[in-house]
Design a protein around this nucleic acid. Structure first.
Lengths: 177, 177
DNA sequence: CCGCATCCCCAAAGATACTG
DNA sequence: CAGTATCTTTGGGGATGCGG
């Protein structure tokens, strides 16, 4: 890893747990001791070598320990050290921040997640999360989704912005709008 | 950026500010509005294109805004949004965690930073930070450093462990010990 | 199986030069 | 000064292999 090399405590903390997957790995271990396989399934998408590498790094940093349970189980588990458990308050704050409201932006067929109140735009479409889900999974169409939405601004622009989000659009390249 | 794609708030938070440099950039902006150049100097080592990219990402995420001050200053500054300022508690917790005590480990000529109390080993050398600095900058030798240290364990092993840390060792490959 | 290690590939970071 | 352009290097993503 490349270190920030700053005296700041935040930088030093990120030197230890700032790499991709590291904090999520700690999150998994706050639930208790876990086996390699448990961690792999709890972190969908993490490559096997990255998981192994992170576990090594966090052990070297004194955040995680590896232990083999006594016979007859004879299972190797990973668990947090005291220093690792001390990360809990930071995780809680990140959790609080991360679950605040957010909104989806559609720009030129590219879907982005943004935080805070929705800014003014050509059109703002507000719909229940379930309606968005139905739209994206093909259970409803753009027309159907709009019926369950409130549109603030140009309705035609709103429809064109929603098109690339519909499930049908997933099989063909999104048109630039 | 590759998103974690998990419903967990921590994962969503890291989707927004989990990339390298992002949280340190937010830290800089908690001090108040800053110009591009201020940020670059406050984040030593950040490549210019990465800084520009992070600023774009954080603006898109609604964490940072860009503003041009009115004439005659006519200076563009970056500052945190309300959502960005809401990261302060998380930064404080990371700061608390990051400035806790840590120790250096020397293993096969490789220097590592570890957290928590120093574990038992073949030898544990305790010295003032200034002595370590002198050793690594060549202002003192291993022998001189040991004189200002307390050694718990095998003294010869301690000396061999310190050798690769001395400034003189930086010009030649560290021997495997 | 479970717990990794190895390989290849590509996207992103690092470094530096350059421009309006 | 505030970025963009370009090139090199690193490290993550994905698949697969392998020993206990």
């Amino acid at each position: 890893m490349k270190y920030y090399g700053q005296a700041c405590g935040i930088a030093r903390a990120l030197d230890v747990v700032g790499e991709r997957w590291s904090l999520l790995l700690v999150r998994e271990l706050t639930l208790g001791p876990r086996r390699y396989r448990d961690l792999a399934t709890g972190l969908p998408g993490i490559p096997s070598n990255v998981l192994a590498g992170r576990l090594k790094d966090l052990q070297a940093a004194g955040v995680v320990t590896r232990r083999t349970l006594p016979a007859p189980t004879d299972v190797t588990v990973y668990e947090l050290t005291d220093a690792g458990r001390a990360l809990q308050p930071a995780l809680n704050e990140l959790l609080d921040w991360g679950r605040e409201s957010f909104f989806l932006g559609s720009d030129a067929g590219k879907l982005t997640v943004r935080r805070g109140p929705a800014p003014d735009g050509d059109a703002v479409v507000t719909m229940p999360a379930g309606t968005l889900y139905s739209l994206m999974t093909g259970q409803t169409t753009v027309t159907g989704a709009v019926r369950h939405s409130t549109v603030d601004g140009d309705t035609e622009i709103a429809r064109r912005a929603l098109e690339p989000l519909a499930a049908a659009a997933l099989t063909k390249p999104a048109p630039a709008i």
